[in-house]
């Protein structure tokens, strides 16, 4: 179960990434953030973001155009 949820629905690149960064910076290490996005480009982008920042992408799920990314702050 996520500790925080960020709804980035309707937002386009690079806003989901910027808002994810902001949300994570307010959280403690080990906490879980769910990011909801409707931007298909964010699938690759969130993966790249986690790659570069060292945060852990636990899962990506898609449900009729809505993407949910579960990220653990590292």
């Amino acid at each position: 179960m996520a500790d925080e949820t960020l709804d980035a629905s309707g937002l386009n690149c690079p806003l989901p990434i910027l808002k994810t960064k902001k949300a994570l910076s307010k959280m403690d290490v080990g906490k879980i953030l769910d990011v909801i996005s409707t931007d298909a480009g964010s699938v690759k982008d969130i993966e790249a973001f986690c790659n570069q920042t060292g945060n852990k992408l636990i899962s990506t799920t898609e449900d009729s155009g809505k993407y949910i990314f579960t990220i653990e702050k590292v």
């Binding site: 690079p14 910027l18 920042t53």
Partner: peptide
């Protein structure tokens, strides 16, 4: 501004 803001977001 897009590249710069994304860059800082990615440390």
């Amino acid at each position: 501004f897009i590249i710069a803001s994304t860059g800082v977001a990615m440390d």
